[in-house]
């Protein structure tokens, strides 16, 4: 393996890891607050992409207005989903998971009917390539790197420092205790879910120009996001960041070295890592409450 290839792998693995982290932020939040695996995450991500497609690609408004639009729309959509479907199911983790699967199915088919079956492009936000040593990387990808680092840091700061963030953290750690402290756990859970949906939509909106939008764009990435979130440990954001890097690097290296068969090694490494760290990288013991 030459230095050139190694450099290429490292650069692109970093990008891939950050994409995985970006995609898993919303899922991590839902997982930490509601203890549920949100199977509709991929479809929320897809809706974010579609919103940006319509606002930025079709209406011709500014890209960041498109992202903002997606965030606002999906935040309220998240509140609606939480109120109608996930709140009644909050004591039954498995039912909530399956309900999210049903929601995902409906959203996906709804998008197919509304949007059509063809993959469509979101116009590029930036163009050109950047020469990093002897590795060339497009400015589009650099933008994603910057944005996902910014969003991840902002979210971690928000959770750790802001008042709402600390309240969310308290709800995630121990809802009973939080409730005794006078926190309105129900409302905070709804807010948390809304923020998670907004994060999913942001990820979709940010990644859409790099790839394409289609009703099925969320199907494949969501499996990777599950792995990142759960390997990270019970809803730990920092854990998810570590897991994102582990998954990104393991995948990029094994795929570059072995081709398609590398997918198998990737999954096996994940299984082995989980066996050595049965609670994820930064997780605590799992208890349903």
């Amino acid at each position: 393996m030459t230095a050139q290839i190694l450099a290429q792998i490292v650069v692109y693995a970093t990008v891939l890891s950050l994409v995985y982290i970006l995609m898993s932020l919303g899922l991590t939040l839902v997982f930490s607050i509601m203890r549920m695996i949100n199977f509709a995450h991929g479809e929320l991500y897809m809706l974010g992409g579609l919103s940006v497609y319509y606002i930025y690609g079709r209406l011709g408004l500014n890209y960041w207005v498109g992202i903002l639009g997606a965030v606002v729309i999906m935040f309220f959509f998240g509140l609606l989903l939480e109120r109608t479907i996930f709140r009644p199911l909050r004591h039954d983790m498995l039912a909530a998971c399956l309900a999210s699967l049903g929601v995902g199915m409906m959203l996906q088919t709804g998008a197919l009917l509304f949007f059509g079956e063809e993959e469509k492009a979101v116009p590029p936000v930036v163009t050109g390539t950047f020469q990093l040593g002897n590795v060339s990387i497009s400015n589009e990808r650099l933008l994603i790197v910057l944005v996902s680092v910014a969003i991840t840091l902002a979210l971690i700061l928000f959770i750790k420092k802001s008042k709402t963030g600390r309240v969310l953290q308290a709800v995630a750690q121990n809802p009973e205790a939080a409730s005794l402290q006078g926190i309105n756990v129900t409302r905070m859970t709804a807010v948390g879910f809304g923020i998670a949906c907004a994060l999913a939509a942001t990820a979709g909106g940010i990644i859409a120009p790099l790839v394409y939008v289609s009703p099925y764009m969320g199907v494949e990435p969501v499996l990777k996001a599950f792995i990142v979130v759960i390997m990270g440990g019970l809803g730990s954001l920092v854990g998810a960041v570590i897991a994102g890097f582990v998954l990104g690097f393991v995948e990029q290296f094994s795929l570059t070295m072995f081709g398609f068969v590398g997918h198998i090694f990737g999954f096996i490494i994940i299984m082995v890592l989980l066996l050595f760290r049965p609670r994820g990288f930064l997780g605590k013991d799992f208890k349903v409450h």
């Binding site: 695996i37 983790m93 499996l223 792995i227 759960i230 999954f267 994940i270 989980l274 994820g280 799992f286």
Partner: peptide
């Protein structure tokens, strides 16, 4: 347990 078992069986 729980989600960790989910992800390992899925893998």
């Amino acid at each position: 347990k729980g989600p960790y078992f989910f992800i390992i069986t899925m893998s």
